[in-house]
Each structure stands twice: as structure tokens, then as C-alpha cells.
């Protein structure tokens, strides 16, 4: 019996692959016959797309080029996209922190740690909950779903004062990792909602097949269904990570020591009362954006599948 389990689970997996393979969305867009569109239309289409692309990319390009300029050149009243005397000084200043005033590495470490912990906690709590909501009927299910629908909309501003007060009472304020508690829970409802959509897309027959194979409910969940929703898990993980990586309000309100800041608040210290250090700010912005970009390129494939096949039922 114990030997037959893995075998049958594999069978269920193959079955699942076939089923979900059939469910895969058609990637081919609908296109009217080419002849019906004029060259003028095509030129107009490209013109609109090119202009939009420029507008969408320009602010980032401006940051990129400015990060290689000196502050004097940045605050110049002539329009120059390219730096006249390209310098790496801003990057050196950020990465080596020669004046011991802007601990970029501490900020990055805090941000990464907080985002990673948020991701792990968020996913591990959301995953089973979403599965249960997708598969089982039980007393209180509607209440739980309704409560998630409502909490999904809670803005941070709503919890700002109470969390501030509660964290103060516990002496937790000022610790970056205390933010994990707030981030993981505030993104839970949406995580569950997305995850549930992914589970819903997996046919229930697979669960039954697993049960028939002798797997317990946990085995079905963990060994058959969960592996099939890896893209969904990636989306939810990514969502949690980005949420924590980007969060500004609670971090601004709760963190005080310079070394305890996360990146969004840390970078704000280049915008000070008596001026803005645009050189360092743009360089740091770029350094912060690059890992997110890489992550995004990786997650994008899953993200789009997830958003269209998971949360959007066509």
C-alpha cells in the first residue's frame, strides 16, 4: 500500500497535466483579415504605440541618464538627456557611503528581509485557506468570503493609528521586521482571492482521483493540486513581495532609526529639508528598480497567465 502511493500520485499528476493542458488559453489573438486594414491605419497604430511607449519609458530613462550626471549638471536649466561628463560618482557614493550617513546596504537588507518574510508568511497562510475555500463547503464559508471581500479594501490608512498605537504599546515600533506582521496580513485577503481563482481552475475530479488513490486530504492538497498551481503561487508570492517592497506609509510612520529604514523611506532621506540630492537619489532609485525589474521579467509570464486565467475568467 505504502509503495503504491507515489505511483498513483504520479498518475494523478499526469492526468492533471492533460486536463490543465486542455484548459490552456488560446494565445492567438483574434485578427481581422489584413487586407481590411489600410496602410494609414497601420501607420497610425504604430504612431500611437510608439508615442505611448516613449511616454511610458521616458521617466525611467530620465532617471537612468541623470544618475550618471553630477548634481550641478542635473540642476541645469538646459535640456540634456545624455550626461555631458558621465560619472559613476553617484553610484560610488551610494554603494560605499563614504560619509556614513546613508546606509544603503542596511536599507536594502531590511527591504529584502521584510519583503521575503512577508512573501513566505503570506503564501503559507493564503495557500491552504484558498484551497479550502475553493474545494470545501463548510459552515461559515460565506462569512469568511465576505469578510475577505471587505478587508481586501482596507487601506493602510485605516489601520495606521491602531497599529501605531498597538505597536507602540508592545515596543515593536522602529523594528523593520515588525512591518512583516502588517504587510503579510493586509495582503492576505487579496492573496487568498487570487489563489482561490487558481485552485478553481483545477478540475475537482483530480481531488477525487487523489482520494481514490488513497491520499488523505492533505496529500491531495499538497502533492496533487498545489504543484499544478505553481504559476498561481508565483503570482501570489510576487504580489506579496512587491507589496512589502513598495510599501511606504507604514514604513514612514513606524521606522525611526536611520539603519532600520526600508528602501522607500531610506531613499526619501535624499529629499531633505534643505534640498534634494538628485544624483544619489536617481542612482539609488535605479539600483532599487533593477532587481525588481529582473524579478518582474521572471514573474511576468506567470503574472499574466495568473491575471488572465486566474483572476479573470474569460
Amino acid at each position: 500500500m505504502s509503495q503504491s502511493r507515489p505511483e498513483s500520485a504520479t498518475d494523478a499528476k499526469t492526468l492533471a497535466k492533460q486536463v490543465t493542458g486542455e484548459l490552456a488559453l488560446p494565445e492567438q489573438p483574434y485578427a481581422p483579415k489584413r487586407s481590411t486594414r489600410s496602410i494609414v491605419g497601420s501607420v497610425a497604430t504604430h504612431a500611437v504605440l510608439i508615442i505611448t511607449s516613449i511616454v511610458l519609458v521616458f521617466p525611467i530613462l530620465w532617471i537612468v541618464f541623470s544618475s550618471f550626471k553630477s548634481n550641478a549638471e542635473i540642476q541645469n536649466t538646459t535640456i540634456e538627456l545624455f550626461p555631458s561628463q558621465p560619472t559613476l560618482q553617484n553610484y560610488v557614493n551610494i554603494l560605499t557611503d563614504p560619509t556614513h550617513q546613508y546606509p544603503f546596504w542596511s536599507w536594502a537588507g531590511n527591504s529584502f528581509g521584510v519583503a521575503f518574510a512577508t512573501m513566505i508568511i503570506g503564501v503559507s497562510i493564503a495557500l491552504p485557506a484558498a484551497y479550502a475555500l475553493s474545494r470545501f463547503e463548510f459552515l461559515g464559508k460565506q462569512g469568511v468570503l465576505l469578510s475577505f471581500l471587505i478587508t481586501q479594501m482596507f487601506p493602510g490608512a485605516l489601520l495606521l493609528v491602531p497599529l501605531y498605537r498597538l505597536f507602540t504599546d508592545l515596543g515593536l515600533l522602529g523594528h523593520p521586521y515588525a512591518l512583516v506582521i502588517a504587510y503579510a496580513t493586509t495582503s492576505l485577503p487579496f492573496s487568498v482571492y487570487m489563489m482561490k481563482n487558481f485552485f478553481d481552475a483545477v478540475p475537482k475530479e483530480l481531488d477525487q482521483a487523489g482520494l481514490v488513490d488513497g491520499l488523505g486530504p492533505f496529500g491531495v492538497f499538497w502533492r496533487i493540486i498545489t504543484p499544478l498551481t505553481i504559476p498561481g503561487i508565483a503570482v501570489v508570492a510576487f504580489f506579496n513581495f512587491m507589496n512589502a517592497w513598495n510599501e511606504f506609509m507604514l514604513a514612514r510612520a513606524f521606522l525611526t532609526d536611520n539603519t532600520s529604514l526600508t528602501l522607500p523611506v531610506g531613499l526619501q532621506s535624499f529629499v531633505f529639508a534643505f534640498g534634494v540630492d538628485w544624483g544619489r537619489l536617481t542612482a539609488a532609485s535605479l539600483l532599487v528598480t533593477i532587481p525588481v525589474f529582473i524579478l518582474f521579467v521572471w514573474a511576468q509570464r506567470y503574472l499574466i497567465t495568473g491575471l488572465t486565467g486566474g483572476s479573470v475568467k474569460g
Binding site: 525611467i60 532617471i63 517592497w245 513598495n246 532609485s285 528598480t289 518582474f296 521579467v297
Partner: peptide
């Protein structure tokens, strides 16, 4: 893919 706060700094600029 741009973090919100980076976008804010960029546009403020």
C-alpha cells in the same frame, strides 16, 4: 515594474 516610490521621485524630478 517600477516601484511606486521610485516613480514618485522620478515624476517629482
Amino acid at each position: 515594474a517600477t516601484p511606486q516610490f521610485v516613480a514618485a521621485f522620478g515624476w517629482r524630478f
